[in-house]
Structure formats: structure tokens, C-alpha cells
Simulated scan of single mutants.
Amino acid sequence: MLYIPRITNILILLLVLGTSGCVTVKEEPQNPVAAWVLKLLPDSPQVRRQKLLERLGSADADQRRQGVLMLGEGQAPTWEATAKILRIMARGDVDAQVRAAAVQVLVKNYAIENIMDTLKETANDKSLLVRRETLEGVCRRQQDDAMEILLVMREKDEERSIRARAAEVLAKYRNRKVIRSLINGLEDPEFAVSFQSRESLKKLTGRDFDYDSKEWQGWLATSEDPFAALAGDYE
């Protein structure tokens, strides 16, 4: 993952790429970062513009994090440029707390399918904090794209709490891929993961073959509808 050293560089980049759909400002300040923020906040009070400018352009990570959270307030999520800034900050800020905050605001305010590329990257972030924020974000959605991220995190994340939480949430998805992943989870070296994999298998199928992955696999191979036992619970 490539981390961009200063958020000012991000905003300058966005300014160069253009501001389609934004209101044109008559008096452009010399600072290109200030120009971008003024276009981003065409109808906001000058005080709010200045605060956002100072925070997003700050070298202080906590100030940038506060700026990110401001982008999730009021009408800010409806501005065309907001999602662009949040995506870049979620993937490129050098500070994990800023990246995690950007993920939080993205998941809260935008349809999961529109930010999936970003979440796929943050699901592999080197920071546990960012991966946890990504996981909890997709846990609140029940869509196929979210399921794919959960499967990857259940199978590949190095942190056992992430793998266990992903196994728990996968119980919401009636999909053979999920069952196969959970069966593999029974053999996870961490008991928390194998235990949660078994619990989710029981919830999905109404069956219990303990931690015997071979018996689970044999049953799945011969089962026409592995969810039939609990079909009434989903109607």
C-alpha cells in the first residue's frame, strides 16, 4: 500500500483532476488547497470552510482525523468531491487513525457497492485498527460484495479476532462458499476461530458434526440444499 505523506498533496491532486459538479468560486485564493476546499464547501459559512481547510491540510494527524469526521456531517456527504477525498485518505494517509476514520465515514454514508474497491484495499491494511473498522463496516451490510470481503478476512487475516468476527457474521449468508469457508475455519489453529466457525455452521445448516471437517465436507458434497433444515427461518 502506498502512503501519501501529506493530505495537502491529496487535495492538490484532486484539484488538478477537476471539480465537476462543484460551484465555481469567483475569487480564487492563491493556495490551491484553499481553492479546493472553497469549491468543496460552496454554501458553507466561511468559518466552517476555514476549519476544514486547516484540519485536512494539517501536518498533525489528529487535526486531519477531525477534518475527515467533518466530511461525514450535515450535507458534506452529498458533495461530489467528498467521497473522492475520503477514498484517497482511507488508502493513503500515513496515520492509521486517519485511515480508520475515513473508512468509518465512507461506510456510514455511502452504498457499499460504490466504495467496494476501497474496502477491499483497507481490508488488507497493515494496521489492525483500519482492518477492524473495515470489518465492522461490512458487518452492518448484508450484500454479496460485503460477503466476499468477509470471506477474505475469515480466511487470510493474521489477527484471530478478525477471523473469528468474520466467521460469526458469515452466518447471515446462505451461500455454499460461506459453508466451505467455515468448514475450513474448523481447522484454524486458534480455538476462537474454529469455535465461531462451528457455531455459524450450526446456525446456517441446523446440523452439527462437531469439529470434524471431513464429515462436514462429506455432508455438503451430498446435500442438494444445505440450508433446507432451517428454510422456514428465512421465509
Rank of each mutant, 00 (worst) to 15 (best):
E148W: 08
A83V: 15
L41W: 03
N124F: 05
I115L: 12
R64M: 07
E148L: 15
R132P: 00
R91V: 11
G72F: 09
R132S: 04
R132W: 14
L52D: 08
G57W: 01
R91M: 12
D144G: 04
P77R: 02
G137V: 07
R65Q: 12
R99F: 00
E148Y: 07
L129H: 06
D93H: 12
Q143F: 12
G137Q: 02
L151D: 04
Y110K: 13
L106G: 08
E73K: 09
V103C: 05
Q66V: 10
I85K: 00
K120E: 13
V107G: 03
P45D: 12
R131H: 07
E54G: 08
A81P: 11
V47Y: 14
V130R: 08
N109R: 07
L69Q: 08
A123Q: 02
L129G: 01
R140L: 11
L150A: 11
Y110F: 09
Q30G: 11
W36G: 01
E80R: 11
P32I: 03
Q63F: 12
I88K: 13
T134R: 10
R55S: 05
M89R: 06
G72H: 13
L71E: 04
A146L: 04
L151W: 03
R64K: 12
D125R: 06
W79M: 13
N109T: 13
E80H: 15
L56P: 07
L86G: 03
I112F: 11
A100H: 02
V94S: 15
Q46D: 10
G57K: 03
V138P: 02
Y110M: 12
Q50V: 06
R141A: 03
K126C: 02
L40N: 05
R91L: 10
L40R: 00
G67F: 07
K126Q: 13
E148I: 04
L150Y: 08
K120M: 01
D62G: 11
L86W: 01
K51R: 15
Q97M: 14
G57V: 04
G72Y: 04
A59M: 06
G74I: 04
P32D: 03
A59D: 15
A96R: 10
V47N: 08
R65M: 15
P42I: 02
R140K: 13
W79E: 13
K126D: 09
I112Y: 13
D93T: 07
Q142N: 13
L151V: 06
A96Q: 14
N31H: 02
L129T: 04
V105M: 08
L151T: 07
S127G: 02
R132E: 11
E148R: 09
R49C: 09
A35T: 09
R55A: 12
V103P: 05
L128H: 12
R48C: 00
A76R: 15
A102S: 12
L129V: 06
D125P: 14
R64W: 12
D43P: 11
R131G: 02
E73A: 15
Q30V: 06
N31F: 00
L56D: 00
V68A: 11
T134I: 14
A111I: 02
Q97E: 13
E113F: 09
A146N: 05
A90Y: 13
K84Y: 08
L53E: 05
V33N: 04
T122H: 03
L52E: 03
E148K: 14
I85D: 01
S44T: 07
L135G: 06
G137N: 10
I149C: 11
A100M: 12
Q30P: 00
V152W: 14
N124W: 10
T118E: 01
T118G: 05
N124Q: 15
A35V: 09
